[in-house]
């Protein structure tokens, strides 16, 4: 399984697939997008913070465990950090596998496990931060 784990403070641009595998029959992409409301609160966006070295390790551990169950060919994870405005993606996952069942199952399980163990936090922000002076 080829893996790529990236963190970025810039808007997420999905990285190109490294190579086309003739055995790949399914490519699942997930974009987690910041909503305008959280409960009753109207948001400007979410602020994301990570303990990055541990987050990478936890993602790698989860990928290894899930690989034993679903055996995808390649997985790419991009998580945004810092302020993410409403409407923009905070998370991108791409799973390439032989069959759609394993690709969809892997993607869902990965996100569930991330929400349990990967040290990343979001904080609701009702106002966008001021941009830094040039």
């Amino acid at each position: 399984m080829e893996t790529e784990i990236l963190f970025t403070e810039a808007p997420i641009v999905p990285p190109p697939q490294k190579r086309a595998l003739l055995e790949t029959g399914a490519v699942v992409e997930f974009h987690g997008v910041v909503r305008a409301t959280e409960g009753d609160a109207q948001l400007a966006g979410l602020f994301y913070e990570a303990y990055e070295p541990m987050a990478r390790r936890e993602f790698a551990r989860i990928l290894t465990e899930l690989d034993a169950l679903h055996s995808p060919h390649a997985v790419c994870i991009v998580h945004r950090l810092g302020f993410v405005p409403v409407g923009e993606a905070s998370l991108y996952v791409r799973v390439e596998a032989k069959h759609r069942g394993s690709a969809l199952a892997f993607c869902g399980a990965l996100i569930d496990r991330m929400k349990q163990d990967v040290p990343i936090w979001k904080i609701a922000r009702q106002r966008a931060p001021r941009s830094k002076p040039e």
Partner: peptide
Amino acid sequence: IAILPPVSGG
């Protein structure tokens, strides 16, 4: 040593 509140990525 890192103190880690409940995570909420994604």
